[in-house]
Design a protein around this nucleic acid. Structure first.
Lengths: 355, 355
DNA sequence: GTGAAAGCGCTAACAA
DNA sequence: TTGTTAGCGCTTTCAC
């Protein structure tokens, strides 16, 4: 019987089952080279002793830690929270643990990059931080382990992200199909570095307009910080006072779109009657605000990232620069309506409503 | 020079610095028994080799993993996300890593409790899951490591939570001070198990009424699931159609309060003119909705939990059943106003507005 | 199919 | 102040 105040070891289990430690190890790892009866004895002994394998000891000899690390500025975000919440069970199913490095400000981040604690304590790193400097990225390149970029494209590195261009294109087409021709685009400024998606979405918007033969107009592209209601109100005001004011507005994110709607309603400007508003993300606020939006699924992204991590860790000849690009999906809600005099849906509309 | 495709070990550093591995170990752990010059040599060698200590190997001999684990049903929640986001840096500062076990559904949770992977892979466990069964709690009691309950009271175990009774009492007093006498209380049903807080808040509400000599009225206490707008609307409808309808409503959580406001406004019932609404939590939606609320700080809770964990791990004679009870704070906003004919603030009001 | 022995990278006790 | 030695709990040859 093992000492009371200590965790039982394989030796304890071995003794109890009347076998050697090697056999216990083989049994518990499910190697088939163990006879059924011995296996049963070992499993019973392990259960009775409440034995759990020590990752620490195992990793010392295998060289694998059984841990996937996540680097993120925060967990308090719809997107990241959802993605990581999916990631956890996903990794667990593959027998891996999830270690989280939260670096809300520059101090913590600098510390992380200086010590890079992940390097010895994880088999792979998922990067949820969007605004890394070149220097930081370079540091990660030396990491001797798979580094996967989430929700951002990283040249030469594995990454997982949604097709922002295509999503924004489809969203803009939806507005075009509703008869809108003067469509504004509202960007965010200085967000926590979603810059990659931001640009892509603008590109998709421009593509759709160009394809439809609608001229681009710089006056229709405005920007403000998501949290700054004042700037948002001003930008919206400027748009509406244009000689040829927009009849629809595509906000780069749902939170921004919701702010716009809130601003407009406060000024007694009806949405969607006076201005159709389209968002991006399908953030919970979109449903609350009855906002038409282009949905991305953080859960799918988390799952894909987890799969990618596992495959890169376990399969030595997995493509080390694999990109997983996930689709988006238009969710029509009440904030976008046909342009009154414009003629309503002009084809393609029926297909969309299935979403 | 160490082989290319492998992490350098202490032996590599030792060789490079011309000392023994023990000296490297001592240096890197900051033990003072190392001469300044040797220390400098070792540190330089370690830096040049890009060396990081392997927790796995160290823990094998020290018996400590350097890891604090968190058990949570999700990370996609304002409260948990904020708390864990604070916890991360906090632990990092104490040299510990943060491991997260996410168990969104019963399957994962059953698996967690069956294997209890935390037992060999962490020094302490923070429990963010609220609705554990007795059996599960018992299992955690055997865990041979500090288990800290967050946002819930656990008899005989260390825990961290806010003073819900006092918060609700103060909130109710705020409404009483505004002249309200018919004050409804809106509970949530079958939430992910915030049952502990829920009951406490009801108690605080009742206490305040009783102290003020206002009779309790069961008709004024209603309940609905947070997400079920239909039930919420019905419950509110019933309240307003009472012969002696309430003039104020205290919703147990901000999200519920926001739903109530939304419902009322939709039915053209003015808030706060017709009904003052008070929430609890200071969830971001409270600011959005201009909701008076009783704030709790998930950041403070996370921080306190981290401190508690560290002290229990490092200080063998720390009180093993310490409770940290944090205060709440009333945040007056636009959703609560004096009762028109009731006479307005009746003292104590000035003190509150400082919040 | 099973056991014995070596050793993963580190720290702790002891010796110098 | 520093080096030597032993060993943490496990996996992995290699015999049998």
């Amino acid at each position: 019987m093992p000492p009371a105040q200590r965790h039982p070891t394989m030796a304890d289990v071995a003794e109890r089952a009347g076998v050697s430690a090697s056999t216990v190890s083989r049994t518990l790892r499910g190697l088939s080279t163990v006879s059924p009866e011995v296996r049963a004895r070992v499993e019973r002994a392990a259960r009775e002793l409440n034995f759990a394998v020590s990752r620490q000891a195992a990793s010392l000899v295998t060289g694998k830690t059984g841990v996937v690390a996540v680097l993120t500025p925060t967990l308090n975000s719809w997107f990241i929270g959802s993605a990581v919440s999916t990631l956890g069970p996903q990794l667990r199913a593959a027998g891996m643990d999830l270690l989280v490095y939260v670096t809300p400000d520059m101090t913590e981040r600098a510390d992380f990059f200086e010590r890079l604690p992940a390097r010895r304590n994880a088999d792979a790193l998922l990067v949820f931080s969007f605004d890394l400097t070149e220097e930081e990225t370079a540091r990660l390149d030396d990491l001797q382990m798979p580094v996967i970029y989430v929700s951002q494209h990283a040249e030469g590195c594995p990454s997982v992200y949604v097709d922002d261009v295509e999503g924004a294109r489809r969203g803009t087409q939806h507005l075009l199909n509703l008869g809108h021709r003067r469509i504004a685009f509202f960007q965010t400024i200085g967000a926590s570095g979603f810059a990659f998606s931001s640009n892509e979405r603008l590109v998709g918007y421009q593509q759709a307009l160009t394809e439809a033969g609608v001229p681009l107009d710089d006056d229709l592209v405005v920007a403000a910080p998501v949290a700054d209601k004042r700037s948002i109100a001003e930008a919206v005001g400027e748009l509406l006072s244009l000689r040829d004011a927009p009849t629809a507005l595509f906000a780069e994110q749902d939170e921004l779109a919701a702010s716009v709607i809130w601003t407009l309603r406060k000024s007694r400007i009806d949405v969607p009657e006076r201005l159709s508003v389209l968002g991006f993300d399908d953030h919970p606020i979109a449903e609350w605000s009855d906002l038409t939006t282009i949905a991305q699924s953080p859960e799918d992204i988390g799952r894909a990232a987890g799969e990618l991590a596992c495959s890169l860790v376990n399969d030595p000849d997995a493509d080390p620069a694999q990109h997983v690009i996930l689709p988006t999906r238009l969710i029509p809600r009440g904030s976008t309506v046909p342009l009154p005099d414009g003629g309503g849906e002009m084809g393609g509309g029926a297909a969309e409503s299935g979403a």
